[in-house]
Design a protein around this nucleic acid. Sequence first.
DNA 1: GACGATTTTCAGTGATTCACGCAAAACAAC
DNA 2: GTTGTTTTGCGTGAATCACTGAAAATCGTC
Lengths: 219, 219
Amino acid sequence: MGNIRLALVDAHPIMRDGIRCLLADTPEIEILHSTNTITDLIPLLYHDPVHIVMTVFYTPDPEDVAMVKHLCSKHQRVQVLVMSMYKMENFILKMIRAGAKGHLTSDTDRDEMVEAILTLRNGYDFYAKTITNLILKNYLEEAENKLESKREREQKLSTRELEVLKLFADSHTNKEIADKLFISVRTVESHKNNIMQKLNLKTMVDMVKFAIRNNLVDL
Amino acid sequence: MGNIRLALVDAHPIMRDGIRCLLADTPEIEILHSTNTITDLIPLLYHDPVHIVMTVFYTPDPEDVAMVKHLCSKHQRVQVLVMSMYKMENFILKMIRAGAKGHLTSDTDRDEMVEAILTLRNGYDFYAKTITNLILKNYLEEAENKLESKREREQKLSTRELEVLKLFADSHTNKEIADKLFISVRTVESHKNNIMQKLNLKTMVDMVKFAIRNNLVDL
DNA sequence: GACGATTTTCAGTGATTCACGCAAAACAAC
DNA sequence: GTTGTTTTGCGTGAATCACTGAAAATCGTC
């Protein structure tokens, strides 16, 4: 197999330079493109295709997931390797579902990065150890009892409570929730109280975070 | 003048590796320490002092400013070079006031980085062109068109507001925040109101999400 | 159908927070 | 010293929270 054609996407030029430098003494990896965003990269791929796109994300932004999805659908032959500088299982899994074939975290090093690129080029997926644990956990849970999060909410929260929680975490006021569900504001309050008690949450900030973590609402 | 003894602070190991790699063929710069945080670095400096500490920040966090200030006061002979991956004139200026002697942005490159380090070692300050432009632009705008800069400024949060937002999104009640910051509960309320207005957020749920998205708190 | 368990509904009460407006003191820039 | 911003704080009425209690609806099951 010939050289591996790589594209680098990172909002910070210095980081792109750093990665390029780290990969400099790996001659079988050739960096063809280096852009700020996936959007900038896509047009370049038509005349100069690559095998692998490595993109770095610094914050968990739903837009990034959408961009990865878009890239994967537009260029089905490229393999996307995501490096995320945050540690949100949620989003990492979303990236994988969006079509990413590999994933690294910010505590990776040159060797792991090269290994990831080579692995992807050979047609296999690559997930950093820190990620593997996560995926394994998730998979096991899904196989045996749907999702952990699902178990958590469905075993502990009732249907109505879930409805209220969703609306609340979607930035609706109690009054709005009450109107939407044709119940009184006091009932909404009760549900929220019960949710907090059941899940052992202290504040409603915790409630919002719970909802996000469990995919009840988008960030 | 002998070798320049440098310490590197960055929350992301891969970035530290990248920078180290970029500086590898500049033999007069010697990287002695490489840590996650300034806090981790400080004890090392007692037995192994350096000339320059280069620290990278990804989000505008008042605590980072405080850490830089602390570092500058504890080790008055070290010179701090800040690289900020965001573009908030506000915070860049604060870093300078906190004692940083140089400043780079994420669109810097190896040469500029080396230049900055050498300049600092020679006893002069160094500010990247992009920074100078920023400051100049800001200055001009303020002089000629107040509205524009006002609008811009209103989208940014002040130090205090960021502190309040962080604590709030970290599940603290207003009372707790007030106690922690030694201000009244009413002041906390004011800050929260101002934040919502500045960021054009409707509810506190939105505020929590904003904080998570911007990495001010963990999920 | 009857029974118990759970869910859903709602209210009282006092504390806390929200939303909006206003303003003095502190601070920084010029 | 003047100007503008930030930080601090208060007043008011509405909304929400935290806690308790409780009636009505629903569900599983014998």
